[in-house]
């Protein structure tokens, strides 16, 4: 699903990724961990297509295709989803309007009929119920006045609606209390699927108590320094990143 080969990238002229190699297969959940500044978010933004993030060497293949050759919206329509660490507030645009534009853009690309307002409302209500998403939140402007937990739940909710084939979740657990963390984790687990690959980027291992990954990778200074199965999280808990020679 996702093949990253010898990836080098820079941001604002500064080299951040230095030869990252990583692959995630359909049906798997991987966790990408590492200290601040190790390049986790840079990878997420590069995959999503943020301006200013420049690949200098290597490649990213998504379903065997050159991901970086696609523009931002194409990637999304082809099934790549990035859950933001800091979701953006958009005053004046209701979450419902935003979600409808998003879902219909993706459906259109996939050759499916676009939802009209009534159909969409039905779909949203159903999903909201499944994910315990308060209805009132969707009438409000996108992320405006949402608590930290609500913003992250809104990200997971978008992911559920868009049904991506590759989902990257960038520090989706940061700033959440234990209850919000549980809700977010159950939202992720619900999306585990043989046809879907999920890459969870996290600084802390506590999310991994709820979302048990198939593989864990530790990143430092722009490349992977260690990979292993779920037991690696417990090991990290004991030794810290320093113990793995991965201190920032």
């Amino acid at each position: 699903m996702l093949e990253i080969r010898n990836l080098h990238a820079r941001v604002d002229g500064k080299d951040i990724l230095r030869g990252l190699t990583l692959s995630v297969n359909a049906g798997e959940v991987h966790a990408l961990m590492g200290p601040n500044g190790s390049g986790k978010s840079t990878l997420a933004y590069l995959i999503a297509g943020r301006a200013g993030y420049e690949r200098t060497d290597g490649e990213i293949l998504y379903q065997g295709r050159d991901l970086l050759a696609m523009n931002v919206e194409e990637r999304a329509r082809e099934g790549v989803f990035l859950g933001f660490q800091y979701p953006v507030e958009i005053p004046g645009v209701s979450a419902l309007t935003f979600l409808k534009s998003s879902v219909n853009a993706v459906r259109k690309h996939r050759g499916l009929a676009e939802y009209d307002a009534m159909e969409f409302l039905k779909v949203v209500r159903e999903k909201a119920k499944q994910l315990d998403m308060p209805d009132g939140l969707l009438q409000r402007p996108v992320n405006v006045g949402f608590s930290g937990g609500e913003k992250k739940r809104h990200e997971i909710f978008q992911m559920a609606l868009l049904e991506p084939t590759l989902a990257l979740l960038d520090e989706t657990d940061s700033g959440l209390d234990i209850d919000a963390l549980r809700v977010v984790a159950s939202g992720i687990n619900r999306l585990r699927d043989p046809s879907r690959a999920i890459l969870v980027i996290t600084h802390y291992q506590r999310l991994l108590d709820y979302v048990v990954p198939d593989r864990i990778h530790v990143m430092a200074q722009g490349r992977l320094v260690k990979s292993g199965d779920k037991t690696l999280a417990a090991e990290l808990e004991k030794t810290g990143y320093a113990g793995l020679g991965a201190a920032a």
Partner: peptide, 26 residues
């Protein structure tokens, strides 16, 4: 904001229009 909307599949023109609509729509 434009980037955020585009990562949700909304093309650039539609994203810009959505933001303008929000600005005036308030």
């Amino acid at each position: 904001s434009v980037f955020y909307l585009r990562t949700r599949g909304i093309d650039e023109k539609a994203a810009r229009n959505l933001l303008i609509e929000g600005f005036i729509g308030e």
